[in-house]
Amino acid sequence: MAESDVFVPKPSLPPPSGSVGVAGWMRANLFAGPFNTALTLVALWLLVSGLVPLFDWAVLRGHFSGGDAQACRSGGACWLFVGERFRFFIYGFYPAGQVWRVNIVLAVTAAAIGALAWPRTPGKRFLVPAAIVGVPALTLALMHGGVFGLPVVATDQWSGLTLTLVLSVVGIVMALPFGIVLALGRRSKMMAVRTLCILFIEVWRGVPLISVLFMASVMLPLFLPEGVQFSKVLRAMIGIVMFESAYMAEVVRGGLQAIPRGQFEAAAALGLGYWRTMGLVVLPQALKLVIPGIVNTFIALFKDTTLVLIIGLFDVLATVHATIVDPAWPAIAIEGYLFAALVFWVFCFGMSRYSQALERKLHTGHKRN
């Protein structure tokens, strides 16, 4: 065969310039046909018509420096108010000379959450129980005082963002294990256990959280022995944990029902008992499947902490609401509520993004290759 007859493949041609890069992405996602193009143009018009005036009010004409409300006279956003009341929004009525205790608690809590969330943190099997036990103990010792010579700060003075975070972290840490136990109890073969768990879940899910907080604040002291008293914060914690654990139980139960029967049979064939089967085989798979539902419940819990205002506790939203009626700062309600909205969005968005990262790591989507 002649040398000229040998087939020599030619090098591949580059893709058309309009199908790659930014232009290709825009053509595929924003301008793929007349209908998508029209929707894109309408969306852009709505964004521009809404964001441009907001940017002008909040940034271009906004006031970021000055001594008092007299500096906010141009019609722009008065961010001086947020700066002036920032300490009250974060610490509330906590004594000014003792806020260093709150700062230590917030720093330790953030460090513990970051260490648990970071995938390469060594010794997590020891860090998890240490964080679950140590962080609440440190929070109680520092914030309440009465030990190591620290003056006592009554829980009625816990308020602002500090109270919101305390209620949220305690609710999240306690609601998940309680929810798992209730979900397992609802699927139990023992009729008494199953009936009690079903009654608990249905009763707590059948009433609004406002009613739960009222009952925890007013009725709970009636069932306590004489001389035993719980603070409002502790009563609110108990009500929130009981309420959210009922919802968490149903989320976990959905994950348990999604596990194939073969997993139970395989564990039984290996000689595993009930608790080892649940702890080593079933629960890891079930919790992995319901990560979105668990995080959604956590986000709802974080936002529901604003309802503690009805029993006389001041969370971050309540502190904002209490300050916007100050006659020294007229017409600043929008700035205060925007600050509260930003605080809630940052924490909720952070939980959402972490859950998505955890889903990708654990392949909870079960996508086909």
Rank of each mutant, 00 (worst) to 15 (best):
F55M: 13
L167R: 02
A236I: 02
R27V: 04
R87P: 00
L182I: 05
V169A: 09
F89M: 11
C72P: 04
V48M: 11
F64C: 07
F55K: 03
Q229F: 13
I132W: 05
A286Q: 07
V207F: 15
K288N: 15
V233C: 06
L338V: 15
A111K: 03
S231N: 08
S4R: 12
Q263N: 10
A258Q: 14
N369A: 13
N296L: 06
D304I: 07
A328I: 06
R205T: 07
V251L: 06
I299H: 08
F344T: 04
V233Y: 03
L270Q: 12
A23L: 13
L213G: 07
W345L: 15
A137V: 11
L270N: 10
V133A: 14
A130Y: 02
S4G: 07
L362M: 11
M351K: 02
P136K: 02
I311Q: 05
E84L: 01
R85Q: 14
A107M: 11
L358F: 09
L287S: 11
F223I: 15
M190I: 14
V6C: 05
E3V: 08
L270F: 07
A286V: 02
W100S: 06
F349P: 00
L30N: 04
V152Y: 02
R101C: 09
A38Y: 01
G350M: 11
W79N: 05
G171I: 08
A137R: 02
G114M: 12
F93E: 15
R194S: 07
S168F: 11
